[in-house]
Nucleic acid binder design. Structure first.
Lengths: 210, 210
DNA sequence: CAGTGGTCTAGACCACTTA
DNA sequence: AAGTGGTCTAGACCACTGA
C-alpha cells in the first residue's frame, strides 16, 4: 500500500486533484490500483491482460496490402458453422470469402460467416475495408458487445495451400474471430488462415504473457 | 468534432472538471480523442491496438499447468542468439530450457536466453513462476522498458516433436518474446513452441483486429 | 485574436472500510 | 470514529491552434 492521497498533498504542497492526476497516470500504466475505503496499492503483475500494439506495417491494413474478393453470397450453413453460430441446421447465412494479398502475393485466406438479415444490402466497399466486428455490427444494425479471438497453428490443407500458392502440410497461422452480441449470442464467425512462412503477428505488449 | 468542454458546462450546468471526467471515461474506451488547441473528436476505429483478456484457464499459469525445468546454465551464444541479442559472437549467456505441462502432458517447449550477469544468482523459483520479462528485469536489476511479442506458425522439427511427445511436421504455435531495456537494447529472448493440436491462445479483444 | 484542451488551486460532501 | 478514495464546485493560468 502506498500513502493516502492527502499524505501526498501535505508532502508536496499540492492539491488532491493534482495528486489524483498523477496517480491516475500510474494506474493507466497498470502500476497501481485503488480501492475506495481501503487505499491505493502497487499491483501484482497481471498475466491475464495483454495489450498488443500492432505496428502499422502489419499485412492487415498496411501499405502493400490488398484484398481480393473471392465470393459473396447467401448459402446454407453446414453443421460446423450452424453449431458455432448456434443456428438450426440448414439455416441461410451470409458467406464471404476473401484473399489478403501482400505485394500481389496471397498471404491469407479469410472466410466469414454472418447471420443473414433479409433485405440488408451488402456493400462491397465494407467487405473490403471494414474489420470483421465492424462489418458484422453494420450488417446486423446493432453493436457487437464482445469479440473473441483465437490464435492457433495448423497444417495447410490441400485446398487452402493451393489458394495461398504454397503446398499442403506447410504451417499456417489460424486466426478465428467470434463476434458476440447482447447476451453473448453469436452474430458472426471468421476464420483466417495465414501462410505461416510469410505472415507473423508482431506486437509490443503491456502486461506479461509468460 | 464534438462541442467544446465549456459548451457542455453551460448545457448541463456542471463544472469543467466534471465534464473532463466524463470525457476521460469515453477516451479510455477509445471512443474520443482530444487535441490541445484543436478540439475533441470521435475516433476512427483503431486497428493497431488490441487488448487481449486472457481467460484464467490458459495453459500458462492455469490450474492443471506445471513447469518442468530441463536445464539452466551459462553457455556460449550461437550466431542466431548473439545476433538477436546484439552481442559479439561467442559471448556467454544464461540459457534456460523449460517444458510446460498440462495435466502431466507436455504442451510447450520454452527456451530462454538472457544476457549473463556475473555473480547474479539464478533463483529456481523465479525460473518456474516468473513471466519472462519479469525474470529478465530481476536478473538484470533494471526494469525492462518494452516487450516485443511475435506469434507465428511452424512445423515441429524432429527434436521439438520428440520433446513434446508428438511427431515431426505437426503444426506448432511459436511465441517469441524479445525483452528490451532502455534505448531498446535487447536483454533477453524467449522462444516458446506450443503443440498446435493441444494449445490455442484464446482471448476477448477490445479494438479491431481485422 | 478567440477558442480549444491541459493543468492546477482550495475547498466540499459522499460511500466505503477498518479498527 | 477515523481514514480511505470517488466525485464535484468555482474559479484560474497556460500552451496551442486556426482564422
Amino acid at each position: 500500500m502506498i500513502p493516502g492521497e492527502s499524505q501526498f498533498c501535505i508532502q508536496y504542497g499540492i492539491t488532491r486533484m493534482t495528486v489524483r492526476q498523477g496517480l491516475r497516470l500510474l494506474a493507466e500504466e497498470g502500476m497501481i490500483e485503488s480501492f475506495r475505503g481501503k487505499g491505493t496499492f502497487v499491483t501484482r503483475p497481471r498475466y491475464n491482460e495483454l495489450t498488443l500494439e500492432l505496428p502499422d506495417s502489419q499485412p492487415v491494413s498496411s501499405e502493400g496490402a490488398n484484398v481480393k474478393l473471392l465470393g459473396v453470397g447467401v448459402v446454407i450453413a453446414n453443421n460446423e458453422v450452424a453449431s458455432i453460430l448456434k443456428l438450426r441446421s440448414r439455416t441461410k447465412i451470409l458467406q464471404i470469402r476473401k484473399l489478403l494479398l501482400l505485394n500481389s502475393r496471397p498471404v491469407a485466406f479469410d472466410r466469414r460467416f454472418i447471420i443473414y438479415r433479409k433485405g440488408q444490402p451488402v456493400i462491397e466497399k465494407e467487405i473490403h475495408y471494414a474489420a470483421f466486428p465492424e462489418f458484422v455490427s453494420k450488417h446486423m444494425g446493432l453493436t457487437a458487445s464482445r469479440n473473441q479471438v483465437t490464435f492457433s497453428a495448423v497444417n495447410l490443407d490441400e485446398e487452402t495451400a493451393r489458394t495461398l500458392g504454397t503446398s499442403a502440410g506447410k504451417p499456417g497461422l489460424r486466426i478465428e474471430q467470434l463476434v458476440l452480441g447482447g447476451e453473448d449470442q453469436p452474430l458472426g464467425w471468421s476464420v483466417m488462415i495465414c501462410d505461416g512462412e510469410r505472415y507473423r503477428l508482431q506486437a509490443i505488449t503491456k502486461g506479461f504473457f509468460e
